[in-house]
Simulated scan of single mutants.
Amino acid sequence: MPRSDRSALALAGLLAGAGVLHFARPRPFDATVPQSLPGSPRAWTYASGVAELALAAGLAAPRTRRTSARAAAAFFVGVFPANVKMAYDWRDKPAPLKRAAYGRLPLQVPLVLWARGVARGAGQGREGA
């Protein structure tokens, strides 16, 4: 299996796992939804879980991989405000939780770059397939 396929499938697995968690354990995600958004936090939690599952499915399929990878990069940028809110809200939590919340912030950059790399690599190494 080409490296680009492995990378895309790994990103799909990460997104699928996160998407499932939005339904299995929604409460922590609800707490990260900015209050300025209309509707209930749970609706936004479920909507983002659906988005992650859809992105994962799109990344898993070579035909939709490039578009899905670009959408995943945009998604990672779009959820950054929720990560900032979480870091702010958890500023008074115990040190391990605070580190986890702050640690999520710089992780968005490699996630965006990973998704962009998958988009660039989509279709490479598939000659004769």
Rank of each mutant, 00 (worst) to 15 (best):
F29D: 13
F29T: 11
D30I: 06
D30S: 08
D30F: 08
D30V: 07
A31I: 10
T32I: 15
V33H: 06
V33T: 03
V33G: 04
P34H: 01
P34S: 01
Q35A: 15
Q35T: 14
Q35L: 15
L37W: 01
L37A: 01
L37I: 02
P38M: 02
G39F: 05
G39V: 01
P41I: 06
R42F: 02
A43T: 11
A43L: 13
T45F: 08
Y46V: 13
Y46F: 15
Y46H: 14
A47K: 00
A47C: 03
G49W: 01
G49K: 05
V50Y: 07
V50A: 09
V50T: 06
V50C: 08
V50R: 05
V50L: 09
A51C: 01
A51F: 06
E52A: 04
A54I: 00
A54N: 01
L55W: 02
L55C: 06
A56N: 02
A57C: 05
A57L: 06
G58Q: 05
L59K: 04
A60V: 00
A60N: 04
A60R: 05
A60G: 06
A61N: 14
A61K: 14
P62A: 00
R65G: 00
R65Q: 00
R66E: 03
R66H: 02
T67R: 15
T67I: 11
S68Y: 01
S68N: 03
A69Q: 03
R70N: 13
A71V: 03
A71G: 05
A72S: 00
A74Y: 08
F75I: 03
F75M: 05
F75N: 03
F75T: 02
F76N: 10
F76S: 10
G78V: 05
G78T: 04
V79R: 07
F80M: 14
F80L: 15
P81F: 03
A82E: 07
N83D: 11
N83V: 11
N83A: 11
V84G: 07
K85W: 12
K85I: 13
K85V: 13
M86Q: 12
A87R: 07
A87I: 07
Y88C: 11
Y88R: 13
Y88S: 12
D89G: 12
D89K: 10
D89C: 09
D89Q: 10
W90Q: 13
W90N: 14
W90A: 15
R91T: 02
D92Q: 15
D92W: 13
D92L: 12
D92M: 10
D92G: 14
K93N: 11
P94C: 10
A95Y: 02
A95H: 08
A95L: 14
P96Q: 01
L97Y: 14
L97E: 15
K98V: 07
R99N: 09
R99H: 10
